[in-house]
Design a protein around this nucleic acid. Structure first.
Lengths: 140, 140
DNA sequence: AAACCGCTTGACGTTGACGTAAGCGGAAGA
DNA sequence: TCTTCCGCTTACGTCAACGTCAAGCGGTTT
């Protein structure tokens, strides 16, 4: 248990640059230990990186992500006020993501319609157009 | 039919600034007509704005959005190669969104777990902790 | 006519999320 | 020992997506 990772391993695993990981550290999103100068990442750091990258993919800013990570860190040992605040923030993110899920589903159905429309166009094209590529000039 | 809109109407309807709409025009995402100097938006422009904003919300860059809009414009009257290219692009966006939907669902389940964890902590806290707020100093 | 709108076009400023270049330090292989 | 890799830090550069003035134009209300 309690594996550790080099920066290079993580860059390869997650396809990010070392610059990015160091930047996330500067921003307080992760805090790997040091052996001398070199960073030595624990499983906890790796787990946080996974969260960061997923958050990034779904459109969260780094400061939003930092906020969430901080909540995970502090809502355990904070006072009641802290904990309630954490709950509120979590629900905000929840609602944001639910709205976003709807946007994505709408976009998906529209894209599927577009694809079937293209397929119809191709089907008709095969019947009506000459077999060779039309020599139309690019729209200008 | 064939309503038109002023820039001000659209900024209010979609809660964007006029600067944003002009910027999208500069970037070739919309192309409203002009009455003299002033822009006069047609339903088509409005529909494109809806697409743009939704694309933005789900994390597409403006250049990706422009690409999609161009596909909608041109796949009708392009050659077979154009049309096939459009189909490929549409499918790329489709897969990207499907991956993103999974990310969102994962994030959602994790957030819900976090919220129930917070609720558990609160429930126990009510039983074990003093009723007054703990006077813990902010982490430094 | 003056004052005031709302809209326009530049042009420069800003913010977030890194990229890139320069130079140093240790370790490992030839 | 020399070179060749990482890895580190510092610091300036960049790109997207607008924000923020500044200055001007065309109608219309007073």
């Amino acid at each position: 248990m309690s594996r550790t990772f080099t920066i290079r391993q993580l860059t390869k695993e997650f396809d990010v640059t070392a610059r990015t990981l160091r930047f996330y550290e500067d921003e307080g999103l992760i805090a790997p230990e040091r052996r001398g100068q070199t960073r030595i990442y624990a499983s906890r750091d790796r787990a946080r990186i996974i969260l960061i990258l997923r958050g990034r993919r779904v459109g969260f800013s780094l400061s939003e992500i930092r906020e969430i990570l901080d909540l995970y860190d502090t809502h355990h040992d904070g006072g009641v006020t802290q904990t309630l605040h954490a709950r509120k923030k979590f629900e905000e993110q929840l609602h944001k993501l639910e709205r976003q899920k709807i946007d994505i589903e709408d976009s998906l159905t529209e894209l599927r319609r577009a694809i079937t429309a293209v397929d119809d166009a191709i089907a008709k094209g095969i019947l009506t157009a000459p077999a060779v590529e039309s020599h139309r000039v690019a729209a200008e």
